[in-house]
Computed example of a mutant assay.
Amino acid sequence: MGVWSASLFDALDESDLLRKDGEKWSVAGDGVLSSWVADMDFPTAPVVRKALRRRIEGDLGYPAWFDQSDGGPLGGVFAGRMLRRFGTAVDETHVRMFTDINQAMLATLQVATRPGDAVLLHTPACPPFIDVIEKTGRQPLTVPLQANDTGWEFDPDLMERAVASRSPGRCRVLFVVNPHNPTGRVFRRDELEHLAELALRHDMLVISDEVHADLTYPGYRHIPFVSLSDEIAARTVTLTSGSKAFNLSGVRCAVAHVGPKTVRSALDERHGLMFGQVSVLGVEALKAAWAQGDGWLDDVTRVLDRNRRRVAERLPDGLRYRLPEATFLAWLDCRGLGLPDPDPMPYFRDEAKVLLFSGPAFGAAGNGFVRLNFATSGPLLDEKLARMGAASRRRQ
């Protein structure tokens, strides 16, 4: 192992987690183990803590990067990371900063589309994405992923029919989540090329959420959407942050690499008070994570790789699970339990004292499913699975 050993990641104190005041643990309830929202239980990377302490002891005044036309303080760091980890060269001056992925998506939709325009995306879909689309007056055009013996796939014909169902030119955006949340799929090059061809043929802007890219497991390869061709790069907005790989959801800092010049200019015209600004602490945390945190990340990924297999080995009877190719999220099919409610979450919360994410919250494609976050210690994961196993046996 690199920075830490697996034993250190497994040395989490349950009582300390229960005292946390963040969303993940504070809403769990007495005696309930939390595995719902996508925060890891692991402590923050040492390089990030060091960077934050240094900034706190320094200048906390107004930052000097209000104008981001040169990419701002994260442009070069992002470009360097894309080249180092994914072999993709990008223009650092195309980077713009936002507080999170959802805000970046919202801002892009506002400047690049009109109310009533459709956004094509796969389901199950992370709930905030549908929320952003609908609250901006745009229409989610959903196409379900299909389960097969090897994992999850999308049906190209269904996507074609979905686009054709709208009046010409009104499906304006293809929204890609890769690696996919909640299924954990890492799309292959041929799949991405089909999506790219669809976007080109229908003149769609592409918004590509790649926030889980750093958490891709051995044997799989994340391919940035912008790397497919120069033509695709010129119409793609790539969204990412350190919220998942480095557990930095609360620092509120994300980036958008904005390929289309018209979208970039429109965002710059409205930058500042309209879309808000990231904090200096958020920038320092993300800069340190991306520039110096790879050793910590490699250690975490090895522990998560072990944990995803642990779920497969110890999953209760009656539940189905396809090993995720990325992310720290297990998408569990609970339909074999015969629960009367399409949402298994309340059953496991009440009967197993394990809080999972509701499957139906991801759309109709999530009926009968729950999402389990396995970014925790081995002993805690074992306890959660044991509780779920006991509750499952009571249904049989």
Rank of each mutant, 00 (worst) to 15 (best):
V258S: 10
V177W: 03
V27A: 05
R54D: 09
V32F: 00
L239A: 14
A386D: 11
R170K: 08
A266Q: 02
F369C: 05
A233L: 03
I133S: 04
R201S: 10
D294C: 01
A364S: 04
G242D: 03
P360Q: 10
D131K: 00
H212Q: 11
R320H: 06
M82T: 00
A104V: 00
A288M: 02
S7D: 07
P144I: 01
E23C: 07
P115M: 11
S167C: 06
R264I: 06
D70W: 09
R114G: 01
A291I: 00
E284D: 10
D21A: 05
L355N: 08
I207T: 10
T376I: 10
A364C: 04
A245V: 09
G29Q: 07
P140M: 11
H194V: 15
S265W: 05
L381H: 12
Q110N: 03
W296F: 14
G272C: 01
T88H: 10
G31Y: 12
A361W: 06
D157T: 14
M105T: 04
S279A: 06
A386Q: 13
P340K: 01
R309H: 09
V32I: 11
K20S: 09
S69D: 05
L339P: 06
R166Q: 13
P224E: 02
R252S: 08
V263N: 13
T238H: 00
D131H: 09
R320N: 11
G282Q: 02
H122K: 14
V211D: 06
L52E: 06
Y347K: 09
S241R: 07
G359F: 12
D294K: 03
G242F: 05
D299Y: 11
A365G: 02
R49I: 05
